[in-house]
Amino acid sequence: MNMIKQELRMNLRSLITWCLSLLAILILFMLFFPALSDQMEEFQKVFNSFPPAFQAALKLDTITIDSIMGYYQFAFSFILLGGAIQAMNLGVAIISQEVRMKTGDFLFVKPITRNRVVTMKMLAALILITMTNLILGIGASIVLLITDAQSFDLKTFLLINGSLFFTQLFFLSLGLFLSAFLKRIRTVLPLSLGVVFFFYVISMIQETVNDPKLRLISPFDYFNLAEIMERMEYNAFYLLLWMLLIILFVLGTYWLFRRKDLPAI
C-alpha cells in the first residue's frame, strides 16, 4: 500500500501534465470543427454523385468527419498516439526508475519479494491509467456537448474512449516487459517514443494497404476506430489477441524481473 501511495505521489505531476496535453489535443482539433464542417458541405454533393458501389468500396459512407462523432473519432486517433506514449513511458519507467535513480538499494532490500514490488507498481500504473481515462472522458464529453449537444451519442463515445484505455493497457504492459527485458535503460523517452511511433507508422501503413497479417503486429489497429464506428462493437479476434499479448507481457515481466541482476550503487 505504501508503495502504491508513493508511486501515485511521484507521478501526480506527470499525470496532470498528460491529462492536460491530451485534452489540449482534443480542443485543438475541436476548434477547427466549424471551419471544417462548412468546407465539407460542398463535398457532400460530390459524394452523393458517386455510384453506391463505389461509395461502399471506399467506405465513403463511414467517413463522416462533418458530423461531430465522426470528427471526434478522427481526432481521437491522435489522442491514442499521445495516450500510448504516456502509457509506454509509465510502463518503462515505473520499475526501472529504482535502478536509474539509484534508489533500488533502499527498496529491494526490504523484506518483500520482488514479485510483490512488481505487483504494487503495476497496480499503481493501472490506477494512473484509469485516472487519465476518467479525466479525459469527462473532459471530452464536456467539450463535445459544448460543440454540438444534439448529435452526441453515448454508446459511440464510450466505445471510442474505451479504445484509449485498452490501447494504453497494451503499451503499459509492453513497456513493463521491455523494462524487465533490457539490461539497463538510461533515458526512458527515446525508447518509448521510438516504439510508439514505430507502431504508429505501422498502423498508418495498415490503413493504406489493409493487410490482415500486418494488422496482427499493429496494436493501434486492434481497436480500429473506423471499424468500431461502423460495427458499434470491438473486433472479438483482436480483443482476444490483445488479451493474450498483455498476459504474456505481464507474466514475462514477473519472470524476467525476478531473475534480473540489479546493479547496486
Binding site: 496535453s21 489535443i25 485543438l28 482539433f29 477547427f32 471551419a35 471544417l36 468546407q39 491522435f78 498516439l81 499521445g82 506514449i85 523517452l189 517514443l193
Partner: peptide
C-alpha cells in the same frame, strides 16, 4: 516529445482545414 507531437498535429490540421 512535445515539439514533435505539436508540429505533427499542426501539419495534420493544416492538411485538413483550409482555414
Amino acid at each position: 516529445t512535445g515539439f514533435v507531437m505539436l508540429t505533427f498535429l499542426f501539419s495534420v490540421i493544416a492538411d485538413l482545414v483550409d482555414a
